[in-house]
Design a protein around this nucleic acid. Structure first.
Lengths: 363, 363
DNA sequence: TTGTACGCGTTATCAT
DNA sequence: ATGATAACGCGTACAA
């Protein structure tokens, strides 16, 4: 059975309701917004007309006349919404925003600065009440003075590119440092890095933390142990690079993955080479099957939902405040959860200096 | 250094630009919309004023005056946006919608029908061009006639609750049947089900598929092998129930997990009981670490991004069409990917009829 | 080519 | 307690 439903061109308006109820549009508006100064009889007639027509107020129109009222929205721009970390941030944001009636626009920048630019401007054109961005840019001056400071911007898990903006982030550098120090504590001296090459961003801070840990331990940072790919890297690319590193002449005995997708790549590479139980590995950011892996994955866990929630709270504060207050920075400290993969000891030092490296040394 | 930035109360409007450029608002509008009939000199003055003021058009106002023009948005309601499946659908939707300039509202129903209702109505109040919903309701009559048929609704991965609506879904029942038949093919006769108890929804169809497979094979469906939890189940709840089932007097030798979160629960339960290599298990919907698990996870893989993309395409079609066409249903067939966990053979049949079951029989 | 008048749906303001 | 008027920011329709 083929069902064809015709869509009526226009949604009913206050005017339609008013006509049907035999009152003025103003009275309808009062009923809808819950203004008490409406007689019982009229109110009932209006409500009946609303029900009969299936009237729902047009929030866009309301917001136009009364910008501070209902109908607000917030725009969220992340790299890709289907990254578990980003999705969790979106969820936290939604949870914080819902009680206040804000709706959430979400969009992905695909790791492209130009796309992020388009998205943020488009959000602004929709006159969102605030923006939340996990930026892939290093410079947001194109938002000044159009978007900033007209609309509050909250930077999440990345640097705050503009002054006076709220900032909610993980402790990238310190977390990375702790991960790598953890590997060093387990005897490793050749530790690989798999992550992003972006500098100036906290994601880049993870590389800095990696280097800091090595330096502190008196170890050198050889470039051949650092896989720093573009922001738009795919898992397949990172995996290929990791495999190359692991099969090189002088491979690392441990790997630090700077993000959840990088850990996926490292996990696949190790699995493919059957090295998962030999090469220590630890990830920045947890994954939900961490405990089920062999060995169970050690990770520096973030609190992405909480990050999102804090962004939402910052927005509520900004929107409510009458006089601008100082921008706040919240840094959420993660926790190093040792489950096994990060505690694989380094293989005994090779005595012989010559001869090809071989991987059959370990137990 | 504390930076306090004042937000200017009002964004500039065409009027402001017009005043600065010394032209009429209409000329500004023409320049902004790219209307060619504007003199070069005026155009330049206008563009200069736009740049100086940081003007961006207000899409809400545009849309009000010109509903068919730019400024459209689509609302997506899923259970929780941080479910990988839902997030992937959102991504596909976004990819399909972006070229047409639609923005995407996302919201989570939390598995609550009442919340879904609120969300959909709020979307409608924002006058979205279309709705996409992974519904948890069994009845959408509350949308009639207010929302339906005024706004196109696309049902995704769930039943189409309203006539005349587009429908994009996986083959829940057949996929589930194939998973369970696969387990039966490997000798299993006691197969557990972990999933949702909702009836009337395709998610419920997965339970139906499970039953169909058993019936076809001449096996009985004992209730003690079916864990059917409410839609709002947590992973912890499902895990606890699975552990109870696995430690019962007569446990299953194989388990079918009806959704990705259920697989997480089953995986944790099996891992905790050290049964992951003994009890066969297979999931509806893949997870990204499937290959890294021990044993690698067999799954009936969906194409969530593609589902979202098809929803987007359906919307574009609806919005463009002048005369309503018949509603379409697209069913995406999944693929059973055998990686190991689903091919664990059933333990040899016990000869003795008495005595407690023991799990040390298997190799 | 440029400007004027009006309306989109709603509500603040003032009047009755 | 109720209604009339105007305005939010923009664009269509028409006039100049």
């Amino acid at each position: 059975v083929v069902v064809v439903t015709r869509r009526s061109a226009t949604a009913p308006t206050v005017k339609d309701v008013a006509a049907l109820a035999g009152v003025s549009p103003m009275t309808v508006s009062r009923v809808v917004t819950g203004n008490p100064s409406v007689g019982v009889d009229l109110r009932e007639r209006v409500l009946a007309a609303i029900a009969k027509l299936g009237y729902e107020p047009n929030r866009n129109a309301s917001a136009m006349r009364n910008p501070e009222g209902v109908g607000g929205a917030v725009g969220l721009c992340v790299e890709t919404i289907d990254n578990p970390f980003s999705a969790a941030v979106a969820r936290g944001l939604e949870l914080a925003l819902r009680p206040s009636g804000f709706l959430l626009f979400t969009a992905s920048s695909e790791g492209e600065a130009a796309t992020e630019r388009d998205v943020l401007l488009e959000f602004y054109r929709r006159r969102v009440a605030a923006l939340v961005v996990m930026t892939v840019c290093t410079d947001h001056s194109f938002l000044v003075p159009t978007v900033h400071p007209r609309v509050p911007i909250v930077y999440v898990d990345r640097p705050a590119l503009l002054p006076g903006c709220d900032h909610v982030t993980s402790d990238h550098r310190e977390g990375a440092r702790r991960c790598v120090a953890h590997l060093i504590d387990h005897g490793h001296r050749r530790i690989g890095f798999v992550g992003s090459n972006v500098t100036g961003l906290p994601i880049g801070e993870r590389l800095a933390g990696y280097r800091a840990a090595l330096t502190t331990a008196g170890l050198s940072c050889s470039d051949d142990l650092v896989i720093a790919l573009p922001h738009s890297r795919t898992v397949a690319e990172a995996r290929a690079a990791t495999i190359a590193m692991l099969t090189s002449a002088n491979p690392p005995t441990a790997i630090f993955a700077a993000a959840n997708t990088d850990m996926l790549a490292v996990g696949q590479a190790l699995h493919e080479l059957q090295l998962a139980e030999r090469v220590a590995h630890i990830a920045f950011d947890d994954i939900d099957t961490a405990e089920l892996l062999t060995p169970p994955l050690s990770a520096y866990t973030q609190q992405p939902v909480e990050l999102g929630r804090l962004c939402g709270e910052a927005i509520i504060r900004r929107v409510k405040e009458t006089t601008a207050s100082a921008a706040g920075t919240r840094v959420l400290t993660g926790a190093l959860v040792a489950r096994g993969s990060g505690e694989i000891p380094a293989p005994p030092r090779r005595r012989a200096r010559r001869g090809p490296p071989n991987r059959t040394t370990a137990s």
